[in-house]
Computed example of a mutant assay.
Amino acid sequence: MRRLLIAAGGGGDAITAALLHSALYGADTPALVLTYAWERLVVDPVPGPRGAGDFTGLDAVAPGVDLITAGTAPLAPAGSLLPRLAAGLRPRLGLLDPHGGTLGLARQIAAAAAWCQAGRVDLVDVGGDIVARGDEPTLRSPLGDALALAACAAAALPTTVYVAGPGLDNEIPLPLLLPRLGAPALGLESRHTDGVLPLFDWHPSEASALLVAAARGARGVCGTRDAPAPLTLDDTARHVHRLTLEQALDLNPLARRLAGCGGLAGAEAVSEAVCGFSEIARERARAAALPADVPRPREPADAAALTARFAEWERRTAAQGLTHVTSRRIAEELELSPPEALTLFGALRRDPARPPAAPLWRLLAD
């Protein structure tokens, strides 16, 4: 028997699902986390989610249940961090393929529950867009969460919805979000994060990194990449809120409208009608705007040059009132290649003057 959890938005939500599984049931309890292969263009340059046909090496353990392993690989030109994530997480990872819409996802969830011998489902979202109304001006990616919520309802399995780290995805402002969630059910602690902390040496998820940092005691004002405003890390950021499936559906008009949807194109059209946009269409537009030429590799800068560049950037950034930043923001704003990022972060970790704040970075003000 295994616990069955669903990462509502894919990507970093799979890490949060594993973190919450450890807090709720203990890290050694067998579990399966179902997740989308729907990753940012920096990871997967092909817009939209990937399906089972976009991978080799999936472990088909039962009809409709495809597990992602360390030996799974995306078919070019697609990319995916899920095989590497599968190697680093304690729970097993299973692929959620949304191309069959709500009804196709419901069949996958039911099949996974049967394989796990699980009588219920835990649906996990980091940030809170699973309870979006659709008209929030900062909302960016509601479709995956809404599809997962609608699919759990269609699968007719007892489902608990967990929202971890309210507001950490920068999609719904806290004054709007917290009244929808009610009182927190639990607070994550440092001991719950041990199994996932090493993943942030390479995984770009910022919302999950903020959640882990908050659980480990980080407090302050954090800057993420391409966000409308900095995020405040206080005790709220480590909280987990519990809702019934019915409560979450009542709060999410998009999920209710997706009931009975039989394909991804139809789900896109529903998102356009309810929210006024399709995030897949936005991804297509961003992908089309990417430069066609692959940049020529350059000789990586050495540690001394990188730390000097970082020190100047750090002074400017700390002057904005930020106390912490994510690894992804550093790498993108300094335009670091992966080897340069490894070199810089290694040098920063060895600096005895820099307080530990993993998986974030504490800025040193003058």
Rank of each mutant, 00 (worst) to 15 (best):
R90H: 14
A106Q: 02
R133C: 12
V126N: 07
A113V: 13
A114N: 04
A73M: 13
Q108Y: 13
A52G: 03
P45L: 10
P63W: 11
A87C: 11
A37K: 00
G104F: 00
G119K: 12
L32S: 02
R92V: 05
A112F: 08
V61Y: 06
P63D: 15
D125E: 14
A132K: 01
A60M: 08
D66S: 13
L123G: 04
C116N: 02
D66R: 13
A118G: 07
D122M: 03
L75V: 15
R92W: 09
A111L: 14
P98W: 00
G100R: 01
G64R: 04
R120V: 02
P137K: 10
L139Q: 07
D66K: 02
G100D: 03
A76V: 09
T29L: 09
G48Y: 07
T29Q: 14
L105R: 01
T72W: 09
P91E: 08
A106D: 03
A86T: 13
A114M: 05
L81C: 10
A62W: 13
R92F: 04
R40P: 02
G104Q: 02
G127Q: 02
V42E: 15
F55R: 01
C116I: 06
G51D: 07
G134F: 10
L103S: 10
G88T: 08
L85V: 09
A111R: 11
L95Y: 05
A86S: 15
A110V: 04
V61Q: 05
E39S: 06
P77Q: 11
